[in-house]
């Protein structure tokens, strides 16, 4: 508010207030200084975190990834296929089925196939017996 527009009451109350501000003692002034520096330090710390932490986080992430990779590589048994175990099992099953199908015969699928000669011999024996009986 411009000074020339102030009434006496406004001017005097302002002067009184200014005098009381000037009279603030050193103990209070010291605590105000501490409070101000604490506030500024707080924002300085948060700004440091805001701008520095992403770089530190990225570096830590890269380091962690490298560490995990090294650990996996060093603990992997030599000669072990690099494919996952489940996938290897599934592939082996498919290969076995291919072998069976590609064999061109159904021996493996017909359990009676190995006994055909035996049944033929039994049948021949039965025929001879019948001939002897009639003869």
């Amino acid at each position: 508010m411009p000074a020339q527009n102030r009434t006496d009451l406004e001017t005097r109350s302002r002067a009184l207030f200014d005098a009381s501000v000037a009279a603030v003692d050193m103990r209070v002034q010291s605590r105000l200084n501490v409070a101000r520096h604490a506030a500024l330090d707080a924002v300085a710390g948060s700004r440091w975190r805001r701008h520095r932490m992403p770089m530190l986080t990225a570096a830590a992430g890269v380091a962690a990834a490298a560490l995990i990779a090294v650990a996996l590589w060093s603990t992997w048994p030599p000669g072990t296929p690099s494919t996952p175990i489940g996938a290897a099992d599934g592939r082996a099953g498919l290969e076995d089925l291919d072998i069976v199908v590609a064999s061109g015969s159904d021996d493996a699928l017909d359990p009676m196939r190995d006994d055909v000669d035996f049944y033929a011999w039994v049948a021949a024996g039965a025929d001879r017996t019948a001939a002897d009986d009639h003869g």
Partner: peptide
Amino acid sequence: HAKELDKFLADVERRAFR
């Protein structure tokens, strides 16, 4: 920026206290 902020706070702190 910190200096400007410090100056502002130093200017108003006693009046604000009162």
